[in-house]
Nucleic acid binder design. Structure first.
Lengths: 218, 218
DNA sequence: GCTAGCATAATTGTATACAATATACAATTA
DNA sequence: TAATTGTATATTGTATACAATTATGCTAGC
Protein backbone atom coordinates (compact mmCIF):
# COMPACT_ATOMS: atom_id res chain seq x y z
CA UNK A 1 0.00 0.00 0.00
CA UNK A 2 1.14 3.50 -0.74
CA UNK A 3 2.54 5.32 2.26
CA UNK A 4 1.05 8.64 3.27
CA UNK A 5 2.80 11.62 1.75
CA UNK A 6 5.23 13.62 3.80
CA UNK A 7 3.76 16.35 5.98
CA UNK A 8 3.14 19.53 4.06
CA UNK A 9 4.35 22.64 5.81
CA UNK A 10 1.82 25.39 5.45
CA UNK A 11 3.00 28.95 5.48
CA UNK A 12 0.75 31.96 5.80
CA UNK A 13 1.71 32.90 2.26
CA UNK A 14 0.45 29.55 0.96
CA UNK A 15 -2.76 29.72 2.95
CA UNK A 16 -3.42 33.22 1.69
CA UNK A 17 -2.67 32.12 -1.86
CA UNK A 18 -5.14 29.24 -1.69
CA UNK A 19 -7.86 31.38 -0.26
CA UNK A 20 -7.45 34.17 -2.80
CA UNK A 21 -7.15 31.71 -5.68
CA UNK A 22 -10.45 30.19 -4.64
CA UNK A 23 -12.08 33.58 -4.51
CA UNK A 24 -10.91 34.48 -8.00
CA UNK A 25 -11.85 31.18 -9.62
CA UNK A 26 -15.27 31.21 -7.98
CA UNK A 27 -15.89 34.72 -9.23
CA UNK A 28 -16.09 36.23 -5.76
CA UNK A 29 -13.57 38.75 -7.01
CA UNK A 30 -14.63 40.09 -10.38
CA UNK A 31 -12.26 41.03 -13.19
CA UNK A 32 -10.42 44.33 -12.61
CA UNK A 33 -10.99 44.05 -8.87
CA UNK A 34 -8.02 45.64 -7.09
CA UNK A 35 -6.45 43.51 -4.39
CA UNK A 36 -5.38 46.02 -1.72
CA UNK A 37 -2.57 44.64 0.34
CA UNK A 38 -3.27 46.38 3.63
CA UNK A 39 -6.96 45.68 3.50
CA UNK A 40 -6.55 41.99 2.63
CA UNK A 41 -3.78 41.47 5.16
CA UNK A 42 -6.04 42.79 7.90
CA UNK A 43 -8.95 40.68 6.76
CA UNK A 44 -6.90 37.49 6.70
CA UNK A 45 -5.10 38.37 9.90
CA UNK A 46 -1.60 38.31 8.45
CA UNK A 47 0.97 40.95 7.69
CA UNK A 48 1.57 42.33 4.25
CA UNK A 49 4.71 40.27 3.62
CA UNK A 50 3.08 36.83 3.29
CA UNK A 51 0.16 38.48 1.55
CA UNK A 52 2.43 40.02 -1.07
CA UNK A 53 4.00 36.64 -1.65
CA UNK A 54 0.53 35.17 -2.16
CA UNK A 55 -0.13 37.86 -4.76
CA UNK A 56 3.07 36.96 -6.58
CA UNK A 57 1.92 33.36 -6.80
CA UNK A 58 -1.44 34.45 -8.12
CA UNK A 59 0.35 36.42 -10.80
CA UNK A 60 2.51 33.43 -11.68
CA UNK A 61 -0.68 31.41 -12.05
CA UNK A 62 -2.06 33.97 -14.45
CA UNK A 63 -4.95 34.91 -12.20
CA UNK A 64 -3.97 38.51 -11.52
CA UNK A 65 -1.72 41.16 -13.02
CA UNK A 66 0.69 43.08 -10.83
CA UNK A 67 2.01 46.48 -11.83
CA UNK A 68 4.85 47.98 -9.87
CA UNK A 69 3.63 50.59 -7.39
CA UNK A 70 0.04 50.01 -8.44
CA UNK A 71 -0.69 46.58 -7.07
CA UNK A 72 -2.61 43.54 -8.20
CA UNK A 73 -5.84 43.42 -10.16
CA UNK A 74 -7.88 40.41 -11.15
CA UNK A 75 -7.24 39.56 -14.79
CA UNK A 76 -9.96 40.16 -17.32
CA UNK A 77 -12.07 37.43 -18.86
CA UNK A 78 -12.87 37.29 -22.55
CA UNK A 79 -14.24 34.84 -25.03
CA UNK A 80 -11.04 34.90 -27.05
CA UNK A 81 -8.93 34.20 -24.01
CA UNK A 82 -11.21 31.33 -23.02
CA UNK A 83 -10.88 29.86 -26.47
CA UNK A 84 -7.12 30.15 -26.32
CA UNK A 85 -6.97 28.48 -22.91
CA UNK A 86 -9.24 25.60 -23.84
CA UNK A 87 -7.40 25.12 -27.15
CA UNK A 88 -4.18 24.88 -25.20
CA UNK A 89 -5.72 22.33 -22.89
CA UNK A 90 -6.70 20.21 -25.89
CA UNK A 91 -3.25 20.50 -27.42
CA UNK A 92 -1.43 19.57 -24.23
CA UNK A 93 -3.81 17.03 -22.75
CA UNK A 94 -4.17 15.05 -25.97
CA UNK A 95 -0.41 14.93 -26.24
CA UNK A 96 -0.18 13.76 -22.64
CA UNK A 97 -2.76 11.03 -22.87
CA UNK A 98 -1.09 9.58 -25.94
CA UNK A 99 2.10 9.24 -23.93
CA UNK A 100 0.32 8.10 -20.80
CA UNK A 101 -2.11 5.37 -21.87
CA UNK A 102 0.53 2.87 -23.02
CA UNK A 103 2.26 3.19 -19.67
CA UNK A 104 -0.75 3.05 -17.39
CA UNK A 105 -0.85 0.24 -14.83
CA UNK A 106 -3.66 -1.20 -12.74
CA UNK A 107 -2.58 1.17 -9.97
CA UNK A 108 -3.05 4.15 -12.27
CA UNK A 109 -6.51 2.94 -13.19
CA UNK A 110 -7.41 2.42 -9.55
CA UNK A 111 -6.22 5.92 -8.65
CA UNK A 112 -8.20 7.45 -11.49
CA UNK A 113 -11.28 5.57 -10.36
CA UNK A 114 -10.92 6.82 -6.80
CA UNK A 115 -10.50 10.36 -8.07
CA UNK A 116 -13.58 9.97 -10.24
CA UNK A 117 -15.66 8.83 -7.27
CA UNK A 118 -14.49 11.75 -5.19
CA UNK A 119 -15.42 14.06 -8.03
CA UNK A 120 -18.87 12.55 -8.35
CA UNK A 121 -19.58 13.17 -4.67
CA UNK A 122 -19.99 16.88 -5.28
CA UNK A 123 -22.79 16.05 -7.72
CA UNK A 124 -24.71 14.68 -4.77
CA UNK A 125 -23.66 17.37 -2.35
CA UNK A 126 -23.63 20.56 -4.31
CA UNK A 127 -22.65 22.73 -1.37
CA UNK A 128 -19.05 21.57 -1.73
CA UNK A 129 -18.89 23.03 -5.18
CA UNK A 130 -15.76 25.00 -4.31
CA UNK A 131 -13.90 21.69 -4.47
CA UNK A 132 -14.88 21.24 -8.12
CA UNK A 133 -11.62 22.64 -9.52
CA UNK A 134 -9.35 20.48 -7.40
CA UNK A 135 -11.35 17.26 -7.81
CA UNK A 136 -11.77 17.65 -11.54
CA UNK A 137 -8.05 18.34 -11.82
CA UNK A 138 -7.22 15.29 -9.75
CA UNK A 139 -9.14 13.01 -12.10
CA UNK A 140 -7.52 14.42 -15.21
CA UNK A 141 -4.14 14.36 -13.55
CA UNK A 142 -4.44 10.67 -12.68
CA UNK A 143 -4.95 9.91 -16.36
CA UNK A 144 -1.74 11.70 -17.33
CA UNK A 145 0.41 10.75 -14.36
CA UNK A 146 1.84 7.67 -16.03
CA UNK A 147 3.37 9.81 -18.78
CA UNK A 148 5.83 11.13 -16.19
CA UNK A 149 5.94 14.62 -17.63
CA UNK A 150 6.34 16.82 -14.58
CA UNK A 151 7.00 20.07 -16.39
CA UNK A 152 3.98 19.64 -18.59
CA UNK A 153 1.80 18.74 -15.64
CA UNK A 154 2.85 21.88 -13.79
CA UNK A 155 1.86 24.05 -16.73
CA UNK A 156 -1.39 22.18 -17.23
CA UNK A 157 -2.48 22.55 -13.63
CA UNK A 158 -2.24 26.30 -13.92
CA UNK A 159 -4.16 26.16 -17.20
CA UNK A 160 -6.97 24.30 -15.46
CA UNK A 161 -7.25 27.02 -12.83
CA UNK A 162 -7.59 29.63 -15.52
CA UNK A 163 -10.12 27.65 -17.52
CA UNK A 164 -12.17 27.05 -14.41
CA UNK A 165 -12.89 30.74 -14.09
CA UNK A 166 -15.12 30.34 -17.14
CA UNK A 167 -16.90 27.17 -16.16
CA UNK A 168 -20.41 27.20 -14.71
CA UNK A 169 -19.95 24.25 -12.39
CA UNK A 170 -23.61 24.01 -11.50
CA UNK A 171 -24.37 22.90 -15.04
CA UNK A 172 -21.82 20.14 -14.88
CA UNK A 173 -22.52 18.62 -11.49
CA UNK A 174 -26.31 18.80 -11.52
CA UNK A 175 -27.53 18.79 -15.10
CA UNK A 176 -29.99 16.02 -16.01
CA UNK A 177 -27.71 14.61 -18.68
CA UNK A 178 -24.55 15.17 -16.65
CA UNK A 179 -22.44 14.88 -19.73
CA UNK A 180 -19.19 15.53 -17.89
CA UNK A 181 -19.71 12.45 -15.74
CA UNK A 182 -20.50 10.25 -18.74
CA UNK A 183 -17.48 11.53 -20.61
CA UNK A 184 -15.19 10.96 -17.65
CA UNK A 185 -16.43 7.39 -17.44
CA UNK A 186 -15.94 6.76 -21.13
CA UNK A 187 -12.51 8.34 -21.03
CA UNK A 188 -11.39 6.05 -18.24
CA UNK A 189 -12.78 3.02 -20.07
CA UNK A 190 -10.87 3.83 -23.24
CA UNK A 191 -7.69 4.23 -21.20
CA UNK A 192 -8.24 0.87 -19.54
CA UNK A 193 -8.76 -0.85 -22.86
CA UNK A 194 -5.63 0.83 -24.21
CA UNK A 195 -7.49 2.43 -27.10
CA UNK A 196 -5.37 5.55 -27.48
CA UNK A 197 -7.15 7.13 -30.42
CA UNK A 198 -10.56 6.64 -28.81
CA UNK A 199 -9.26 8.20 -25.61
CA UNK A 200 -7.87 11.17 -27.52
CA UNK A 201 -11.16 11.64 -29.35
CA UNK A 202 -13.19 11.47 -26.16
CA UNK A 203 -10.86 13.84 -24.35
CA UNK A 204 -11.02 16.35 -27.16
CA UNK A 205 -14.80 16.33 -27.33
CA UNK A 206 -15.01 16.45 -23.53
CA UNK A 207 -12.91 19.60 -23.28
CA UNK A 208 -14.70 21.11 -26.27
CA UNK A 209 -18.07 20.47 -24.73
CA UNK A 210 -17.09 22.05 -21.43
CA UNK A 211 -15.90 25.04 -23.41
CA UNK A 212 -19.19 25.23 -25.28
CA UNK A 213 -20.97 25.42 -21.95
CA UNK A 214 -19.15 28.46 -20.65
CA UNK A 215 -21.51 31.20 -19.67
CA UNK A 216 -21.78 34.92 -19.78
CA UNK A 217 -19.04 36.94 -18.21
CA UNK A 218 -17.93 40.56 -18.09
CA UNK B 1 5.01 53.07 -36.75
CA UNK B 2 4.75 51.14 -33.56
CA UNK B 3 4.86 53.25 -30.43
CA UNK B 4 7.47 52.50 -27.82
CA UNK B 5 6.30 50.24 -25.06
CA UNK B 6 5.07 51.73 -21.86
CA UNK B 7 7.72 52.68 -19.31
CA UNK B 8 8.71 49.76 -17.18
CA UNK B 9 9.14 50.51 -13.49
CA UNK B 10 12.00 48.54 -12.10
CA UNK B 11 11.78 47.33 -8.56
CA UNK B 12 14.63 45.77 -6.62
CA UNK B 13 12.74 42.48 -6.72
CA UNK B 14 12.67 42.57 -10.51
CA UNK B 15 16.32 43.49 -10.79
CA UNK B 16 17.27 40.72 -8.43
CA UNK B 17 15.12 38.29 -10.38
CA UNK B 18 16.76 39.16 -13.69
CA UNK B 19 20.23 38.85 -12.27
CA UNK B 20 19.60 35.50 -10.61
CA UNK B 21 17.78 34.17 -13.66
CA UNK B 22 20.79 35.02 -15.78
CA UNK B 23 23.09 33.26 -13.34
CA UNK B 24 21.02 30.10 -13.38
CA UNK B 25 20.57 29.94 -17.15
CA UNK B 26 24.26 30.60 -17.74
CA UNK B 27 25.19 27.83 -15.36
CA UNK B 28 26.91 30.14 -12.89
CA UNK B 29 24.74 28.48 -10.27
CA UNK B 30 24.85 24.73 -10.68
CA UNK B 31 21.92 22.39 -10.03
CA UNK B 32 21.21 21.83 -6.33
CA UNK B 33 22.95 25.08 -5.43
CA UNK B 34 21.22 26.56 -2.39
CA UNK B 35 20.24 30.21 -2.73
CA UNK B 36 20.75 31.65 0.76
CA UNK B 37 18.61 34.68 1.31
CA UNK B 38 20.76 36.59 3.74
CA UNK B 39 23.93 35.99 1.80
CA UNK B 40 22.42 36.95 -1.57
CA UNK B 41 20.66 39.98 -0.14
CA UNK B 42 23.96 41.28 1.17
CA UNK B 43 25.74 40.59 -2.09
CA UNK B 44 23.13 42.41 -4.17
CA UNK B 45 22.81 45.19 -1.63
CA UNK B 46 19.11 44.73 -0.98
CA UNK B 47 17.10 43.47 1.95
CA UNK B 48 15.66 39.99 2.14
CA UNK B 49 12.12 41.07 1.22
CA UNK B 50 12.73 41.95 -2.46
CA UNK B 51 15.15 39.06 -2.66
CA UNK B 52 12.51 36.60 -1.45
CA UNK B 53 10.13 37.95 -4.06
CA UNK B 54 12.77 37.38 -6.72
CA UNK B 55 13.09 33.78 -5.54
CA UNK B 56 9.33 33.31 -5.85
CA UNK B 57 9.50 34.46 -9.45
CA UNK B 58 12.34 32.09 -10.17
CA UNK B 59 10.23 29.29 -8.76
CA UNK B 60 7.28 30.33 -10.92
CA UNK B 61 9.60 30.19 -13.93
CA UNK B 62 10.61 26.67 -13.03
CA UNK B 63 14.24 27.56 -12.42
CA UNK B 64 14.38 26.77 -8.71
CA UNK B 65 12.41 24.79 -6.16
CA UNK B 66 11.41 26.38 -2.88
CA UNK B 67 10.63 24.28 0.17
CA UNK B 68 9.07 25.95 3.18
CA UNK B 69 11.63 26.69 5.85
CA UNK B 70 14.39 25.24 3.73
CA UNK B 71 14.77 27.79 1.00
CA UNK B 72 15.42 27.74 -2.70
CA UNK B 73 17.67 25.38 -4.63
CA UNK B 74 18.51 25.40 -8.31
CA UNK B 75 16.48 22.75 -10.11
CA UNK B 76 18.21 19.69 -11.43
CA UNK B 77 18.96 19.11 -15.08
CA UNK B 78 18.40 15.78 -16.79
CA UNK B 79 18.24 14.43 -20.28
CA UNK B 80 14.63 13.34 -19.82
CA UNK B 81 13.60 16.77 -18.61
CA UNK B 82 15.39 18.38 -21.55
CA UNK B 83 13.57 16.12 -23.93
CA UNK B 84 10.25 16.96 -22.33
CA UNK B 85 10.94 20.68 -22.51
CA UNK B 86 12.04 20.66 -26.13
CA UNK B 87 9.11 18.41 -27.08
CA UNK B 88 6.79 20.92 -25.47
CA UNK B 89 8.43 23.70 -27.42
CA UNK B 90 7.82 21.83 -30.65
CA UNK B 91 4.22 21.15 -29.74
CA UNK B 92 3.45 24.73 -28.79
CA UNK B 93 5.57 26.62 -31.29
CA UNK B 94 4.35 24.61 -34.27
CA UNK B 95 0.80 25.28 -33.18
CA UNK B 96 1.58 28.97 -32.83
CA UNK B 97 3.26 29.41 -36.18
CA UNK B 98 0.33 27.76 -37.95
CA UNK B 99 -1.93 30.37 -36.43
CA UNK B 100 0.52 33.20 -36.92
CA UNK B 101 1.75 32.93 -40.51
CA UNK B 102 -1.61 33.63 -42.19
CA UNK B 103 -1.96 36.79 -40.11
CA UNK B 104 1.56 38.17 -40.48
CA UNK B 105 1.92 41.60 -42.04
CA UNK B 106 4.89 43.42 -43.50
CA UNK B 107 5.37 45.03 -40.11
CA UNK B 108 5.69 41.60 -38.50
CA UNK B 109 8.25 40.57 -41.08
CA UNK B 110 10.22 43.75 -40.53
CA UNK B 111 10.22 43.25 -36.77
CA UNK B 112 11.38 39.68 -37.14
CA UNK B 113 14.15 40.80 -39.44
CA UNK B 114 15.32 43.41 -36.96
CA UNK B 115 15.29 40.82 -34.19
CA UNK B 116 17.27 38.45 -36.36
CA UNK B 117 19.91 41.06 -37.04
CA UNK B 118 20.22 41.83 -33.34
CA UNK B 119 20.59 38.13 -32.67
CA UNK B 120 23.31 37.76 -35.29
CA UNK B 121 25.35 40.52 -33.71
CA UNK B 122 26.35 38.26 -30.84
CA UNK B 123 27.85 35.88 -33.38
CA UNK B 124 30.33 38.61 -34.19
CA UNK B 125 30.82 39.77 -30.64
CA UNK B 126 30.79 36.66 -28.55
CA UNK B 127 31.40 38.46 -25.29
CA UNK B 128 27.76 39.47 -25.18
CA UNK B 129 26.72 35.86 -25.07
CA UNK B 130 24.62 36.44 -21.97
CA UNK B 131 22.12 38.18 -24.26
CA UNK B 132 21.65 34.99 -26.27
CA UNK B 133 18.53 33.88 -24.44
CA UNK B 134 16.71 37.18 -24.77
CA UNK B 135 17.67 37.81 -28.41
CA UNK B 136 16.85 34.29 -29.54
CA UNK B 137 13.54 34.58 -27.74
CA UNK B 138 12.81 37.92 -29.38
CA UNK B 139 13.24 36.47 -32.85
CA UNK B 140 10.99 33.50 -32.18
CA UNK B 141 8.47 35.73 -30.47
CA UNK B 142 8.23 38.04 -33.44
CA UNK B 143 7.26 35.07 -35.61
CA UNK B 144 4.39 34.16 -33.27
CA UNK B 145 3.24 37.63 -32.30
CA UNK B 146 0.67 37.87 -35.07
CA UNK B 147 -1.19 34.86 -33.66
CA UNK B 148 -2.25 37.08 -30.74
CA UNK B 149 -2.07 34.29 -28.19
CA UNK B 150 -0.90 36.06 -25.05
CA UNK B 151 -1.40 33.19 -22.66
CA UNK B 152 0.50 30.80 -24.85
CA UNK B 153 3.31 33.26 -25.33
CA UNK B 154 3.69 33.71 -21.59
CA UNK B 155 4.05 29.97 -21.09
CA UNK B 156 6.42 29.65 -24.02
CA UNK B 157 8.73 32.37 -22.79
CA UNK B 158 9.25 30.51 -19.57
CA UNK B 159 9.83 27.30 -21.51
CA UNK B 160 12.58 29.02 -23.49
CA UNK B 161 14.35 30.01 -20.29
CA UNK B 162 14.31 26.45 -19.10
CA UNK B 163 15.49 25.04 -22.41
CA UNK B 164 18.29 27.56 -22.55
CA UNK B 165 19.88 26.04 -19.47
CA UNK B 166 20.77 23.08 -21.68
CA UNK B 167 22.02 24.93 -24.72
CA UNK B 168 25.72 25.41 -25.39
CA UNK B 169 25.44 28.83 -26.94
CA UNK B 170 29.05 28.90 -28.11
CA UNK B 171 28.29 26.14 -30.60
CA UNK B 172 25.40 28.08 -32.06
CA UNK B 173 26.89 31.54 -32.44
CA UNK B 174 30.38 30.61 -33.58
CA UNK B 175 30.27 27.21 -35.28
CA UNK B 176 31.56 27.12 -38.83
CA UNK B 177 28.25 25.88 -40.20
CA UNK B 178 26.19 28.12 -37.94
CA UNK B 179 23.13 26.05 -38.55
CA UNK B 180 20.96 28.07 -36.21
CA UNK B 181 21.49 31.18 -38.30
CA UNK B 182 20.66 29.40 -41.55
CA UNK B 183 17.56 27.87 -40.05
CA UNK B 184 16.38 31.20 -38.70
CA UNK B 185 16.78 32.70 -42.16
CA UNK B 186 14.91 29.89 -43.86
CA UNK B 187 12.17 30.04 -41.24
CA UNK B 188 11.62 33.72 -41.86
CA UNK B 189 11.58 33.17 -45.63
CA UNK B 190 8.91 30.49 -45.38
CA UNK B 191 6.81 32.77 -43.21
CA UNK B 192 7.15 35.59 -45.72
CA UNK B 193 6.08 33.36 -48.57
CA UNK B 194 3.14 32.13 -46.50
CA UNK B 195 4.20 28.52 -46.78
CA UNK B 196 2.81 27.26 -43.48
CA UNK B 197 3.77 23.61 -43.76
CA UNK B 198 7.32 24.46 -44.81
CA UNK B 199 7.59 26.84 -41.86
CA UNK B 200 6.33 24.18 -39.48
CA UNK B 201 8.79 21.64 -40.86
CA UNK B 202 11.72 24.03 -40.60
CA UNK B 203 10.74 25.08 -37.08
CA UNK B 204 10.46 21.49 -35.95
CA UNK B 205 13.84 20.52 -37.34
CA UNK B 206 15.38 23.70 -35.97
CA UNK B 207 14.26 22.98 -32.41
CA UNK B 208 15.18 19.33 -32.77
CA UNK B 209 18.65 20.20 -33.97
CA UNK B 210 19.25 22.57 -31.09
CA UNK B 211 18.14 19.80 -28.77
CA UNK B 212 20.52 17.36 -30.41
CA UNK B 213 23.33 19.77 -29.71
CA UNK B 214 22.82 19.95 -25.97
CA UNK B 215 25.93 19.03 -24.07
CA UNK B 216 26.97 17.28 -20.95
CA UNK B 217 25.48 18.38 -17.68
CA UNK B 218 25.29 17.12 -14.12
C1' DG C 1 -16.87 76.14 -15.58
C1' DC C 2 -12.42 74.26 -16.73
C1' DT C 3 -7.59 73.04 -16.25
C1' DA C 4 -2.76 73.13 -14.19
C1' DG C 5 -0.41 72.78 -10.31
C1' DC C 6 0.28 71.67 -5.71
C1' DA C 7 -0.68 69.66 -1.08
C1' DT C 8 -2.39 65.67 1.10
C1' DA C 9 -3.81 61.01 1.59
C1' DA C 10 -3.61 56.31 0.15
C1' DT C 11 -0.90 52.57 -1.41
C1' DT C 12 2.99 49.99 -2.60
C1' DG C 13 8.16 48.99 -2.03
C1' DT C 14 11.82 48.07 1.18
C1' DA C 15 14.54 47.73 5.53
C1' DT C 16 14.95 46.17 10.06
C1' DA C 17 13.75 43.26 13.95
C1' DC C 18 11.96 39.28 15.84
C1' DA C 19 9.73 34.46 15.79
C1' DA C 20 9.55 29.82 14.04
C1' DT C 21 11.88 26.13 12.11
C1' DA C 22 15.74 23.36 10.50
C1' DT C 23 20.51 21.86 10.83
C1' DA C 24 24.77 20.57 13.08
C1' DC C 25 26.95 19.04 16.81
C1' DA C 26 27.74 17.94 21.70
C1' DA C 27 26.04 15.27 25.61
C1' DT C 28 23.91 11.26 27.40
C1' DT C 29 22.54 6.59 27.73
C1' DA C 30 22.14 1.81 26.48
C1' DT D 1 30.52 2.29 20.10
C1' DA D 2 25.90 3.29 18.30
C1' DA D 3 21.82 5.38 18.93
C1' DT D 4 19.33 9.00 20.90
C1' DT D 5 18.43 13.25 23.02
C1' DG D 6 19.43 17.97 24.12
C1' DT D 7 21.43 22.39 22.82
C1' DA D 8 23.47 26.00 19.94
C1' DT D 9 23.66 27.95 15.46
C1' DA D 10 21.98 29.02 10.99
C1' DT D 11 18.20 29.95 8.06
C1' DT D 12 13.69 30.95 6.80
C1' DG D 13 8.97 33.06 7.92
C1' DT D 14 6.53 37.05 9.54
C1' DA D 15 5.51 41.54 11.78
C1' DT D 16 6.36 46.26 12.20
C1' DA D 17 8.15 50.66 10.66
C1' DC D 18 9.51 53.71 7.25
C1' DA D 19 10.49 55.41 2.34
C1' DA D 20 8.98 55.97 -2.35
C1' DT D 21 5.41 56.31 -5.50
C1' DT D 22 0.80 57.05 -6.98
C1' DA D 23 -3.94 58.71 -6.48
C1' DT D 24 -7.05 62.29 -4.79
C1' DG D 25 -8.90 66.59 -4.08
C1' DC D 26 -8.34 71.30 -3.51
C1' DT D 27 -7.13 76.00 -4.97
C1' DA D 28 -5.53 79.49 -8.26
C1' DG D 29 -5.76 81.31 -12.50
C1' DC D 30 -7.90 81.82 -16.79
Amino acid sequence: MAIAKTIKRRTLADESFNLLKQRIISGFYKPDHALRQDELAKELGVSRIPLREALLKLEADGLIDILAHKGGIVRALSFDKAQELFDLRILIECDLIVKSVPKMTSENFANAEIALKEFDKIALNEENIEDWTELNWQFHYKLYEAAEKEETIKILKSLHSNCDRYIRKQLLVAGAGNQAHKQHMKLLEYCKSGDVSAAVGELKSHITEVFNGIGEFV
